[in-house]
């Protein structure tokens, strides 16, 4: 990770730590939702950006985590902290099944198969009314019981984001992560270098599904409600937009994307579904001018500023053009 990225992350973390001292519940609510999206976008980025598996089933797996946790905590009277983990395990189990079923698939084949899976999950959640309460949504217990303050949820969200993001960081920059990145670059060449391609791809699918399940479980017990809305293609599109606009295949990208797009979304939501047009427009602009997203721009700026030759000749502005 580049120095500039580290500084940005540290600054964001420090600001986040003291934010509840200055901000009202509404702002905390938006940041909590941002944390949810950062977790989902980061875990999707692990799958798509680092291992090259573009899946559209991520929000469906997130919903599996949410519903499993909600149902278990309701019916078995277990604490949500425990059921969130059980829900995440359920999501990773389904992730394992999808991962195994789509082993040999790439590109549009993988995308279509995962869209089909996502639609099946959405339909089951809508139709199995007796279990899921259908499109109305399932009421689930709060993570902190009847506590109405946002602050415990805020710090839990912050803690979970740190945990997920730190785990991804450790994973990506480990030997396992390097192997996974080589698969993204060229599966055949990776196999010719001794890489067990299938095994690594499935493991990444399972890990990212677990993280999506954690995010889903947390959201369910924060909202005290979980609905099939979570599995719509619109929601999946938002997560993809966050990862891509932030910078696909970069560590900081989904964090910037999740935070900034959720903030933008709050300001433009009065336009109803038109806010998706703004996402679309942003996506087109970013892909046109910086295919590696906002993080790509930061990397370029950082490299230019740290290049001793460019610095000595005072050409920073010229090169950045």
């Amino acid at each position: 990770m580049e120095q500039l990225e580290k500084r940005i992350l540290l600054a964001l973390f420090l600001i986040a730590l003291i934010l509840p001292l200055f901000m009202d519940d509404y702002v905390l609510h938006i940041i909590i939702l941002s944390c949810f999206f950062i977790m989902v976008a980061s875990s999707w980025n692990l799958l798509a950006g680092y291992s090259g598996q573009v899946s559209f089933a991520h929000m469906a797996l997130c919903a599996i985590g949410a519903y499993s946790s909600g149902l278990i905590s309701t019916h078995l009277n277990l604490h949500p902290f425990l059921t969130i983990i059980i829900g995440a395990l359920a999501a990773s189990f389904l992730g394992l099944i999808i991962g195994v079923l789509t082993l040999r698939m790439k590109g549009s084949y993988l995308a279509l198969t995962t869209i089909a899976f996502s639609e099946i999950i959405r339909l089951v959640l809508n139709l199995e009314y007796k279990v899921t309460n259908g499109s109305v949504g399932l009421s689930v217990p709060g993570l902190f019981g009847d506590v109405s303050s946002k602050i415990p949820y805020y710090y839990t969200a912050l803690g979970l984001v740190c945990l997920v993001v730190f785990s991804i960081y450790k994973l990506v920059y480990s030997n396992f992560g390097l192997t996974v990145r080589s698969i993204r670059e060229d599966e055949t060449a990776a196999a010719a270098m001794g890489v067990k391609v299938v095994k690594h791809k499935v493991i990444v699918f399972v890990i990212s599904s677990f993280m999506a399940g954690i995010a889903g479980g947390f959201l369910a017990h924060y909202n005290m409600l979980v609905s099939p809305e979570l599995t719509t293609i619109t929601q999946m599109g938002m997560v993809i937009a966050m990862a891509v606009i932030g910078g696909l295949g970069t560590f900081i990208g989904p964090i910037i994307g999740g935070l900034s797009l959720e903030l933008i979304s709050e300001y433009v939501k009065e336009f109803g579904n038109y806010h998706l047009m703004i996402y679309g427009l942003l996506l087109i602009l970013v892909l046109r001018f910086s295919p590696r997203g906002i993080a790509g721009l930061l990397k370029k700026k950082s490299r230019v500023q740290n290049n001793p030759i460019i610095k000595s000749k005072g050409l920073e502005n010229e090169v950045q053009k």
């Binding site: 670059e185 010719a192 001794g194 890489v195 067990k196 295949g249």
Partner: peptide, 23 residues
């Protein structure tokens, strides 16, 4: 390979470590 198949976005060093990690 006849048509080069490097891990293009990885560094030279990382390209070399990938096979060694598998061993």
């Amino acid at each position: 390979f006849q048509n080069l198949r490097l891990f293009k976005l990885l560094t030279v060093w990382e390209n070399l470590l990938v096979p060694a990690i598998q061993l």
